[in-house]
Computed example of a mutant assay.
Amino acid sequence: MSVAQTENLNIATVDHMPSPEEIKARVPLSDRAAATVLAGRKALADILEGRDKRLFVVVGPCSIHDPVAGLDYARRLKALADEVSDTMLLVMRVYFEKPRTSTGWKGFINDPFMDDSFRIDVGMEKARRFLLDVCEIGLPTGTEALDPNAPQYYGDLVTWTAIGARTSESQTHREMASGLSTPVGFKNATDGDLEVAINAIISAAHPHSFLGINGQGQSAILRTRGNRHGHVVLRGGGGRPNYDTVSVSLAEQALAKAKLPVNIVVDCSHANSWKKPELQPLVMKDVIHQIREGNRSVVGLMIESNLEAGNQAIPADLSQLKYGCSVTDACVGWDTTVDMIRSAHGVLRDALARRERA
Rank of each mutant, 00 (worst) to 15 (best):
D147R: 02
Q171H: 15
T87W: 13
A25N: 14
L279V: 07
G155T: 03
S269G: 09
G138A: 14
Q280T: 03
I120W: 13
F210Y: 14
M88T: 06
L222K: 12
P241M: 14
R240D: 10
D46I: 12
A200S: 10
A254W: 10
V338T: 00
G50L: 10
A69W: 12
D350L: 13
L180P: 08
I109T: 04
N242D: 00
A313P: 05
V122I: 04
L180M: 03
E49N: 02
V287K: 09
E136V: 13
T13A: 15
T141H: 08
G155D: 06
G142M: 05
P140L: 12
G236K: 07
L180A: 02
A353C: 00
A344P: 06
F56M: 06
W274E: 05
R41E: 07
S305V: 08
P67T: 00
A309Q: 13
N295M: 11
L77W: 03
L146C: 02
N311E: 00
C135A: 14
Q5N: 06
G237Y: 06
K257E: 01
G155H: 04
W160S: 08
G215I: 09
A353F: 14
Q290M: 13
G70R: 04
G164K: 05
A316D: 13
A43N: 02
T6N: 12
R54C: 08
Q312V: 03
D193Q: 08
H65P: 04
T6P: 08
G324P: 05
M284S: 00
T182D: 07
P61V: 08
R119N: 12
Q218F: 15
A204S: 11
R75I: 12
I47H: 06
T190K: 10
I201W: 08
G155R: 12
E83R: 09
A316C: 11
L321N: 10
I303P: 02
R100I: 05
W274P: 00
D66Y: 07
N227V: 10
E7I: 03
A316P: 05
P151D: 09
R41K: 14
G333Y: 05
I291N: 02
S319Y: 05
N242L: 01
Y153H: 02
N306T: 05
A254V: 06
Q216C: 12
R26V: 04
P18G: 00
S297I: 04
L180T: 01
W274Q: 10
S2R: 14
E22Y: 03
L321M: 15
L80W: 01
G300L: 02
K126G: 07
K187V: 00
D286I: 13
I47T: 06
R240W: 11
G236S: 09
I314C: 09
G185R: 07
V265D: 04
M284L: 13
A309H: 09
T13S: 14
M92Y: 09
T336H: 04
R75Q: 15
N263D: 00
A43I: 11
D116P: 07
D111K: 08
T245H: 15
G185M: 01
P67Q: 09
P281R: 07
V246M: 07
